[in-house]
Write a protein that binds this DNA or RNA. Structure first.
Length: 490
RNA sequence: GAGCCGUUAGCUCAGCAGGUAGAGCAUCUGACUUUUAAUCAGGUGGUCACAGGUUCGAUCCCUGUACGGCUCACCA
């Protein structure tokens, strides 16, 4: 901040000079009649002669300024574009022009005038009145290269958005994606609900939580790692189709696929199983892609992703066999352990067959799944809330889907047998005691809810940040989160 | 958590067998009423991320620290 002292001081001086003209540099309101994009659209046919019959007012930020003695050109930027303005001393008056000369790049101004086209063919607002709406004291980055430094762009997203308007499009798309999903779920009679972020017992996923403390209650609370168990309580209560866009918090590493807080869509549908949820997933994503892009095939990094249903379906065991050559079913636990270690998987030695299978999957299969793919039938050990397969209790009715080597969603036929669920909780509690920081505690209230009886239910979670990355062709989660988590500056 | 790379003017970047720094844009002064990377003339602006070390001398070499980027490992 101290380095820019001189430049800021110069602007403060101008600010005072403007005040000495009797002008309020921070007025309370302005009423634009047009945005820049509307001008470009409505005045596309205007020629060099100004369209005198139609006066317009626009408001925006000065992005360039070219002074020519008694006249000046500048570009204004507003929410949806830029337009050039032309300010002449003989049009605005001598004193207003003196004030205008004290405007800087970055100032927000209002301009009233008529639209014409310059000799070089650029649509331009010929100003009668220019009015300062907000004085900028801090210089913007340079016009030519803009703001490149990623650190500054993430820390000062406001400056990033000013200088790199295409960044705004990513976040507009993010909103459209959420809106498309919401519209479709609403159309299918899902109810959007809100459940606690502060939870006395965290659960519904395997992750280290953030812990906080409530002084009045004198108790520790956890920021939710998932909202799964609350939504299923609502299914018990008789909401048969619920969903929530849930900000979840996980106290784990950060990289281009992980931010400590992230957004997950979770939905639950009574009387559905995971196969129906699979169809819903395909439809939901495909319709969202089509609504946002107008096509089902979109580029992501080096690939073209085709979201057209039906997507490829593969059981986890088949996928591991296909990609690693290891047939997990035919091996004993000891043999599988040896095979996995030989294949370069780091194991502690106390893993079960199911856990080793999941490790093999992560190592050999996940990075290869570029086109949308459902992986089904997970080992029970890694799926504490999913219903067992009727014909094989070592596996559960669960799927995850992968795109571009990234896990995007997770779903299962929800476990609604309270006795079975209690056993699974006890297993997790044992892991917690053994030091597994991602295991969780027994949630007695959730078990009580299940004891009242939960209908057969299918549930789904979709990582909204990752889906947005895919649909906006962004490489890092930080590029789809407006204010990504950063270490404190110096 | 590990490896590699980066941090120089407001921004984007040069630079240097080690001899305390440059460009463009921005900014300031002057000229200029259809420019658009406006143009022309002249200026201001830097603890070269921070702290140590080596050296007569460090922006440059060495060590450490901070922040960031990329890759890998774990997790959504």
């Amino acid at each position: 901040m101290e380095e820019t002292k001189e430049l800021i001081q110069q602007r403060c001086d101008k600010l005072n000079e403007i005040r000495e003209f009797g002008v309020n540099p921070y007025p309370h309101h302005y009423e634009p009649t047009h945005t820049t994009s509307v001008i470009h659209r409505d005045f596309a046919d205007v020629q060099e002669t100004p369209a005198e019959t139609q006066r317009i007012r626009i408001a925006g930020r000065i992005m360039t300024k070219r002074d020519h003695g008694k006249s000046s050109f500048a570009h204004l930027q507003d929410s949806d574009g830029r337009i050039q303005i032309y300010v002449r001393r003989d049009k605005v008056g001598a004193e207003p022009y003196l004030i205008y000369r004290r405007f800087d790049i970055g100032d927000i101004i209002g301009v009233e005038g008529v639209v014409f086209r310059t000799r070089t063919g650029e649509l331009t607002v010929l100003a009668d009145v220019v009015q300062l709406l907000s004085k900028s004291l801090r210089p913007l980055p340079e016009k030519w290269h803009g703001l490149q430094d990623k650190q500054t762009r993430y820390r000062q997203r406001y400056a990033d958005l000013i200088m790199n308007p295409e960044v705004k499009n990513v976040f507009i798309k993010r909103t459209q994606i959420v809106q498309a999903i919401r519209d479709m779920l609403n159309a299918r009679s899902f109810i959007e609900v809100e459940t606690p972020v502060l939870q006395p017992i965290y659960g519904g996923a395997s992750a280290r939580p953030f812990t906080t403390y409530h002084h009045t209650l004198e108790q520790s609370l956890y920021l939710r790692i998932a909202n799964e168990l609350y939504l299923k309580r609502l299914i018990v209560g008789g909401f048969e189709r619920v969903y929530e866009f849930s900000r979840d918090f996980r106290n784990e590493g950060m990289d281009r696929n992980h931010n400590p807080e992230f957004t997950m869509l979770e939905l639950y549908q009574a009387y559905a199983d995971y196969l129906q949820i699979m169809e819903l997933t395909e439809t939901l994503i495909a319709h969202t892609v089509e609504r946002v892009h107008g096509t089902m095939k979109i580029p992501y990094q080096a690939h073209e992703i085709d979201f057209t249903p039906p997507w490829c379906r593969l059981t986890m065991v088949d996928a591991v066999r296909e990609f690693s050559g290891i047939d997990t079913l035919s091996l004993s636990a000891d043999e599988l352990y040896t095979e996995a270690v030989n294949a370069g998987i780091g194991l502690a030695g106390d893993e079960s067959k199911g856990e080793i299978t999941a490790e093999l999957f992560d190592a050999f299969v996940e990075p290869k799944l570029i086109q949308p793919t459902f992986i089904t039938d997970y080992p029970i050990e890694v799926s504490p809330f999913a219903k067992k397969k009727p014909d094989n209790p070592e596996f559960v009715e669960r799927f995850e889907f992968f795109i571009s080597g990234m896990e995007v969603g997770n779903a299962f036929s929800e476990l609604n047998d309270p006795v079975d669920q209690r056993q699974r909780f006890i297993e997790q509690a044992n892991r917690l005691e053994r030091g597994d920081e991602e295991a969780f505690m027994v949630d007695e209230d959730y078990l009580r809810a299940l004891e009242y009886g939960m209908p057969p239910t299918g549930g789904l979670g979709i990582g909204i940040d990752r889906l947005t990355m895919l649909l906006t062709n962004q490489h890092s989660i930080r590029d789809v989160i407006l204010f990504p988590q950063m270490r404190p500056e110096s």
